[in-house]
Amino acid sequence: MQLSVNGQSRDLELDNRTTLLDALREHLGLIGSKKGCDHGQCGACTVLLDGRRTNACLVLAVTCAGREVATIEGLAGPDGLHPVQQAFVEHDGFQCGYCTPGQIMSAVGMLEEFERGWPSAVTGEVQPAGLTAPEIRERMSGNLCRCGAYVGILAALTDVASRS
């Protein structure tokens, strides 16, 4: 099958049991996306599929033919880090770093969802103009950090949101 990853088309021969996460890590050598729980509970495997954040561990790769996958490896541009990556560095948004690629990809998708005006479970009838701390916590609840770097992650995302 053909899989489009970070704008490049890749040819793969896969067992149809292979998840998108295993295809990325074990077959394409893109080990940025992490396998945490492998059950959709931790968010460490988060990638963008057709521009939307999703858990790569719960998607069969065979269903991704003709779709666009974006991983952490393709996030930084020629001019340096993506603003979310830069903010994680500046605000100590990680300790061990294992959940970080998933946190960052999830945050990129989350910011895009907010831009589109999507409400969350804590949004009232009118969405706030900017991302408040309760909004960020709710929208990022699918990403766990066992080191507990949430304070830094919240600071990083508050900073990025205020600049965009």
């Binding site: 968010g43 599929l49 954040r53 999703t54 858990n55 999830s106 998708g109 479970a121 609840s141 699918g142």
Partner: peptide
């Protein structure tokens, strides 16, 4: 919106 996570709701 009260169910699952942002990633899961997208999928």
């Amino acid at each position: 919106l009260s169910g699952a996570s942002g990633q899961l709701r997208n999928q």
